[in-house]
């Protein structure tokens, strides 16, 4: 288990989530420094969304604690201005236009009106939404909805940004726009927690990668480190992912805590324990 890092943007310790007798998360600990883009990988049903919901305070863990930018996630009032969250299904109101939606969110976030208007116009232009900004969202394409939801998540310029499959189903142009924005936010010091199945996106933008399997973090490191350790399997991030999610972490020869060059750390499960929880 990593030691508590008071400077970490995301500090999760001993997270466990149990539904009945089914263990969704088991002793997940994360320590992610500010400004890191953290790629969070895992097969379907591994517990990625549960982890994200716990990290954003939307779901209570059975055990363990989370601090985001130094704030306990149970303190919702303090947490709200620090985090932005783009869930897999964009939380938008079909009856609103993009501009109305963003105005509404800015109002609820108490962003001063002049600042909000400046940001809204800037983001609408950057994401090529300006021409359609006054059309109702129910007429938008998937990509337009996703971009609107992305803007909504970053409008208050949060310290930590949680993105759940932000580029899934997008055309290359829209996907690239989102990827560039993720990199830009990270450059400005925002910590990005990126959950996705699209490995090239992770390879392109992530500083650190964590792999969740059967409710446990089974591997963690930079993309280069994971690739390097999967050389026997072919050497790509996909090979590394398949190796750790098919038979635990032994495929990478790990089993010990991985300390990455960027400083993020997790507690990977012992290889033979990764399947025990289900």
């Amino acid at each position: 288990m990593p030691s508590a890092n008071t400077d970490a943007a995301i500090q999760a310790t001993g997270l466990r989530k149990v539904y009945g007798s089914a263990v969704a998360l088991d002793d997940v600990s994360l320590s992610i420094p500010s400004g890191t883009v953290y790629g969070f990988l895992g097969p379907n049903g591994a517990g990625k969304t549960t982890t994200m919901r716990i990290l954003t305070g939307l779901t209570r863990p059975t055990d363990g604690s989370v601090r985001i930018a130094g704030t306990d996630v149970r303190d919702r009032r303090a947490l709200a201005p620090r985090v932005g969250y783009l869930p897999e299904t964009p939380p938008l109101y079909d009856e609103f236009s993009a501009r109305e939606q963003l105005d509404y969110v800015a109002d609820l976030r108490d962003i001063p009106q002049s600042t909000a208007q400046e940001r809204i116009e800037r983001y609408l232009s950057e994401f090529e939404l300006r021409e359609d900004a006054d059309k109702r969202i129910d007429a938008y394409s998937k990509g337009m909805k996703q971009k609107t939801a992305f803007v909504q998540a970053v409008l208050h310029e949060p310290d930590v940004l949680f993105l759940d499959e932000p580029t899934a189903g997008l055309d290359p142009r829209a996907a690239r726009r989102i990827r560039e924005s993720i990199a830009a936010f990270a450059d400005e010091g925002t910590t990005v927690f990126l959950s996705t199945h699209i490995l090239p996106v992770v390879e392109a933008v992530a500083d650190e990668v964590g792999v969740l399997f059967d409710g446990r973090v089974v591997a963690e490191g930079t993309p280069a480190e994971l690739r390097e350790r999967a050389e026997g399997e072919g050497g790509s991030l996909e090979d590394a992912f398949l190796a750790v999610t098919s038979g635990g972490a032994e495929g990478l020869g790990s089993g010990e805590t991985v300390e990455s060059t960027a400083g993020a750390s997790a507690s990977p499960a012992a290889p033979d324990a990764s399947n025990d929880s289900r």
Partner: peptide
């Protein structure tokens, strides 16, 4: 609430 994730991460449940 509709768009639950948005509202609950934007403002307090009381609101």
């Amino acid at each position: 609430p509709p768009a639950e994730d948005l509202l609950l991460l934007t403002t307090h449940p009381r609101a």
